[in-house]
Design a binder for these strands. Structure first.
Length: 781
DNA sequence: CGTACTAGTCTTTTT
DNA sequence: GACTAGTACG
């Protein structure tokens, strides 16, 4: 069958335009992957274009793999020479070949977020940065954003002129880059920045790639940032055969530097661009699309488009509000269990999408109880687990001795009796002689300051040297097993009384299988390329359709996927849209969340269920949230249930459960004499009240119930005493107060915390919040 | 040098 | 609630 006949008119228009710049505005589910793959197939089959000259960039490895598989299906062989990969993998491939031109070794290592933090902490210590004011996280964020915008340390410094704070950051940025350079390491952002740098400094390299990639396609274009745009611009500059596909309504990565202007201004930059809009949706029912359209229409400054389908109206959307997140989770699990039992769906057709990773936990518990197979995507990355990082650090050390972060991580793991003081001495020596940490270890005997401890360093160096000598002769799998054995890694895990030692060992086994799988599937397996693959995988890449499991993931991870049954959970103002964006002064922030909601809704093919809870525990504190504004933006006719109108909550919901109030006071104020908090806490634990702050616990015995009641009495007595005793606050329970951000609210409780008064306020617009009096600066009105 | 405990912070999203 | 950095002690 002709590859073009499979497309609708608009899709065909997009696929046939091979030459020149093309912008495909592809609404959710409009078959953009199909257009891209058929376009590539058409180029090869009908236009006689060499696959070697085609490049396609996707967002995840999974998407890249799927695209390649689909082109394979159509074209048969030849498709393997198409360059299909992610931005990051693309850049690594280029840099492995040419980065020596920028003064790096081609076997550079890639630092993940964890490694970056380690470096940053070190720098903060050295430069005496007050991390109370500028946390390492914040600094890394600023640096990352600078890189996204292609701002070099020098430029950053220039921009900081006159601003002391910024100047400090510039210093840190500079130092951070030089530490990375010394370690022969690049962070995620550097991968792209350095490639752009390479292209700019070495026109011959750029030209060689321009001559190779005559036709370039970019998927998920709305999520590209400034550096990525620059990279593409450079590559496409000579031939101008650039086809980008995206949907401005699905731009959800602003926090990562994505620049929505890239897609909105494409026609300005490429004035001769052909623009094609794909609005026919092949995925969802009309009800789902109507809901999505209604929600997204509340955003301003978007490219006008409306999805339609010739599928029927379908079922109405389901909406349910629950008393607690606990009930919510239970309902969802029951619902899925019921449907699957009746044979209406399979587990793998169901997905639960949420705003934050933390929401997965409750659901997970319920799935375990119900015995339903599930998979949580994202959260803590497999390769970020401690035991895995340790072993990878061994591999990295063997591969690149200049990777200080890796060396320092394992030099005393498992314990070799090497302490912090010794390591600091080694570091001093390394810095002084301008050598790597590992090199300093090798010269340990010459470091006068460490004395006897040098003896302990020798075996480590010997071990690494021994492994290195083995690398050319053994398989990766053998090397890893050797490391585990010679270091007694598993043995020392078993010996430790750590609770999760067992699961850690299981993880190590999984790492071994991953190494085996890598060696089997790769033509020329090398240590460096394995480490590279590991560094660039996203959790979503691992998901395969053959697993019959319910999928749990964030809305972000869900982009590009589809399921017949979708559950959007935690639809609450304060959670989704998040509290941060509601309180932000920039309305664009809520718009980004709305796009996220749009992405979520459009994942559903037939059934969409939206749920929320009146009460939910967030970061150990119970919060009471109203139904999400996004739910209210869906026309009521599309929903099977009414949205509660109550903007202010009914009185029957306590602000804080009596139990919690008691606990709080109990913990905060000593009433057993001077031993204060400590004795109160101990008592608390003895009575079995240390777990679960919701009021749902059951009493083990009459005595326990008695002491619990006594606690409440005692607690409220104390709370009262403090309320009328202290006049410093200027307000008391029942007063109306004003908050700078949340506006007006009624004080529901004041509790004397260890260092400050903790005030609970029910705000007219923002709901119930707990805050510290000193910080909140509430004014009685 | 290593461990055990405490206090403080935190997350919204990720290649 | 969970994780981490910092501290006191053996």
């Amino acid at each position: 069958m002709n590859v073009i006949d499979m497309l609708n008119e608009k899709q065909r228009e997009a696929a046939l335009q091979i030459e020149g710049p093309v912008l495909i505005l592809a609404g959710a589910g409009s078959g953009k992957t199909r257009v891209l793959t058929n376009r590539a197939a058409y180029m090869i089959q009908k236009k006689g274009i060499n696959p070697w000259n085609i490049m396609a960039i996707t967002f995840t490895n999974k998407a890249a793999g799927e695209m390649r598989a689909r082109i394979d299906d159509i074209v048969g062989n030849g498709s393997e020479s198409i360059w299909v990969s992610t931005f990051h993998s693309t850049c690594v491939r280029i840099l492995r070949r040419y980065i020596d031109r920028l003064g790096f070794d081609t076997n550079f290592t890639i630092y993940d977020t964890d490694d970056q933090k380690t470096v940053m902490k070190e720098i903060c210590k050295r430069l005496q940065i007050d991390t109370k004011q500028l946390s390492d996280r914040k600094l890394l964020n600023m640096i990352s954003h600078a890189k996204d915008e292609l701002i070099s340390p020098t430029e950053f410094e220039l921009n900081a002129m006159g601003d002391y704070g910024k100047k400090r950051v510039a210093e840190v940025y500079k130092e951070y880059q030089s530490v990375l350079r010394r370690s022969n390491a690049l962070d995620f952002d550097d991968l792209i920045v350095k490639t752009v740098e390479l292209f700019k400094q070495c026109p011959d390299v750029l030209e060689s790639y321009q001559n190779r990639f005559l036709y370039i396609m970019v998927d998920e274009y709305q999520d590209t940032n400034t550096v990525q745009f620059e990279l593409i611009r450079l590559l496409a500059a000579k031939n101008r055969n650039l086809c980008v596909v995206g949907d401005d309504d699905q731009s959800i990565y602003k926090f990562r530097g994505a620049n929505i202007r890239n897609i909105l201004d494409f026609e300005k930059i490429y004035a001769d661009a052909k623009v094609v809009k794909l609005e026919q949706n092949y995925r969802s029912t009309q009800s789902v699309l109507d809901a999505a359209n209604a929600v997204i229409s509340n955003n301003r400054g978007r490219k006008d488009k409306a999805l339609w389908t010739d599928k029927g109206l379908g079922e109405r959307l389901h909406f349910k509000q629950f008393e607690s997140a606990y009930d919510e989770a239970e309902f969802i699990v029951d619902d899925i269990a019921g449907k699957c039992r009746k044979g209406l769906v399979e587990y793998k057709d169901c997905a639960i999408l949420y705003r934050t990773n933390a929401q997965a936990r409750l659901l997970e518990e319920k799935f375990i109880i119900a015995g339903i197979p599930y998979d949580v995507v994202g959260g803590t990355n497999f390769y970020a687990r401690r035991e895995i990082k340790d072993l990878l650090a061994y591999l990295k050390t063997i591969d690149n001795g200049r990777d200080d972060v890796a060396v320092r991580r394992i030099v005393n793991v498992p314990k070799r009796g090497i302490g912090a003081t010794t390591l600091n001495r080694v570091q001093e020596y390394a810095t002084e002689h301008e050598i790597s940490f590992y090199e300093a270890l090798r010269q340990a005997e010459q470091i006068s300051t460490i004395g006897r401890s040098a003896v302990k360093l020798q075996p480590f160096v010997n071990l690494i040297q021994m492994f290195r000598s083995k690398v050319p002769h053994v398989k990766l799998q053998e090397l890893l097993n050797d490391i585990i054995e010679k270091t007694d890694y598993i043995a020392s895990l078993e010996a430790s009384d750590e609770e999760d030692a067992k699961s850690r060992i299981e993880n190590i086994d999984e790492l071994i299988s991953k190494v085996v799988a890598y060696e089997e599937s790769t033509e020329e397996p090398t240590l460096s390329s394995f480490l590279e693959e590991v560094a660039l995988v996203a959790d979503i890449d691992r998901i395969s359709e053959s697993d019959n499991k319910v999928l749990l993931m964030t809305l972000h991870s869900a982009k590009g996927l589809e399921f017949s049954h979708v559950y959007l959970v935690g639809m609450e103002d304060g959670l989704f849209p998040s509290y941060m964006t509601i309180t932000a002064e920039d309305p664009m922030e809520v718009e980004e969340e709305r796009r996220l909601c749009y992405v979520g809704i459009t994942r559903a093919k037939e059934y969409l269920t939206l749920t929320c809870a009146k009460q939910r525990m967030i970061r150990g504190e119970t919060q009471y949230n109203a139904v999400s504004r996004f739910v209210r933006e869906i026309p009521t006719a599309l929903l099977d249930a009414k949205i509660p109108v109550s903007k202010t909550r009914p009185d029957d919901i306590p602000d804080v459960t009596t139990y919690q109030e008691a606990r709080r006071t109990f913990r905060a104020k000593p009433f057993y004499g001077e031993t204060a908090t400590k004795s109160a806490m101990t008592e608390d634990k003895q009575n079995g009240f240390s777990r679960g702050a919701t009021g749902s616990r059951t009493y083990g015995s009459a005595e326990e119930a008695m002491s619990f009641a006594a606690m409440i009495r005692k607690g409220s007595e104390i709370a009262e005493k403090h309320n009328d005793g202290e006049g410093g606050l200027g307000y008391e329970v029942g007063d109306t107060v004003n908050h700078i951000k949340f506006g007006k609210g009624i004080v529901k409780g004041i509790v004397n915390g260890s260092r400050d008064y903790e005030v609970t306020v029910d705000f007219t617009n923002a709901g119930v919040k707990k805050m510290f009096a000193n910080f909140a600066k509430l004014k009685k009105v």
